[in-house]
Write a protein that binds this DNA or RNA. Structure first.
Lengths: 212, 212
DNA sequence: AGCTAAACGGACGGGGTGTTCCGATAGCGT
DNA sequence: ACGCTATCGGAACACCCCGTCCGTTTAGCT
């Protein structure tokens, strides 16, 4: 009868276990989004109404839980980049991409922190991030070719913008999103190729800080 | 003979105590600057080659040490604002003010964190910050009157910029300063009043997060 | 040099964290 | 209905943190 299970990849997880797993993930998602990654594992277990041991059986370490939680956010991120790339007007696509990525990061503090950091000894989003950055590079190339994006824009500028965006702390998620919108608009204005372009200071490589 | 001490306000601190106090402050300054405020008091005591109790005798709490350490940085901050205000060209003064404040924050992670936070139950820089912000408002008013600064700039935008600047994390202090320079230039470009000014999204109040 | 009070610092308590052990519980196939 | 076993969760471990107590050291005045 086990084969009667709807084509699910979950190899025979007992019903209570599956419920707990999903409740843990839901709780972790909202909590990380609201409070960032500095949430105690105990706290997540408490909110999910399970014991700490149960949490650790499903996710052997905190980094594992974090990566599991943010895999879908990473997908949303690449989807945003893809949509920007699909826009026939590359500059408009570039702008919308930045606006939406900034807002996504503003709405999820944990994802924002995870994105600009690197977890050692854990599957992180390095591969997906690099892939997305490659697409952004293509989008930027087109926007430059269209004459709208200043030619001295580099990819590290985007990393810088996202790091900066993650520094904006507010009380409510709505305020964070609003601040992020204004911030992105200000920066986009600065990235526009102007008739008389004052040169920017040199770009900086921004290697991701390692999270202990 | 105690009166022979050069006009010092230090009421009779024993020589070893004064040495320790100064060494603690020096260590705290550099450590906070490099690593931010999340440094253990023990660690500061260790680097200053004193016991934890000595550290706590000189500064009864961590917040006290932090405020003591960053008082001079706060003075540097207001000095920068004053210099900007003294510039005959208000727009140039405004730009230089932003650049220099951003660089100051980039060079001192601890000060940056302390500036955009509020310590409860501790003398924080609220008064000085408000005073400096008042001067910035005057500078911004002049820059707007000169037609160089976009009219919809608000003071909270500066807070936002400083918060964002504090989110830029790098490996070396030099890289942080360089990134900060580029970041500030990008933002200043966005703050410039353009012939055709695309309206910004609404501004957002950014109450300072409380540090526990 | 000797004495006294100021200053020192190792050890301690209370609370936090990520993670693990193991006896109790409860799903599920029979 | 029963029993096997996957799963649960409270208690515990090891390690951090901030801040304090108290016996020891030492500066500085006579």
């Amino acid at each position: 009868m086990t084969n009667r299970l709807p084509h699910s990849l979950r190899y025979s997880l007992r019903s209570d276990a599956r419920d707990n797993r999903e409740r843990i993930l839901a709780v972790a998602r909202t909590t990380f989004a609201e409070q960032g990654l500095d949430v105690a594992m105990r706290e997540i277990a408490r909110r999910a109404e399970v014991g700490p041991a149960t949490l650790y059986r499903h996710f052997p370490t905190k980094a594992a839980l974090v990566t599991e939680v943010f895999t879908e956010q990473m997908a949303a991120c690449t989807a945003i980049v893809d949509e920007g790339l699909a826009d026939p007007d590359p500059w408009r696509g570039f702008c919308r991409m930045i606006e939406r990525v900034c807002e996504l990061h503003a709405r999820d503090r944990g994802f924002s922190a995870a994105f600009v950091s690197a977890f050692p000894h854990a599957i992180d989003f390095a591969a997906e991030r690099e892939q997305a950055l490659g697409k952004v590079a293509e989008l930027a190339r087109r926007a430059k070719a269209g004459g709208k994006l200043r030619p001295d824009f580099v990819l590290d500028d985007l990393i810088m913008v996202l790091m900066a965006n993650s520094g904006i702390r507010t009380t409510s998620p709505a305020a964070a999103a609003a601040a992020s919108r204004r911030f992105a608009a200000l920066l986009i204005q600065g990235m526009r190729a102007e008739p008389a372009i004052p040169p920017l200071p040199p770009a900086v490589r921004l290697p991701l800080a390692v999270v202990t």
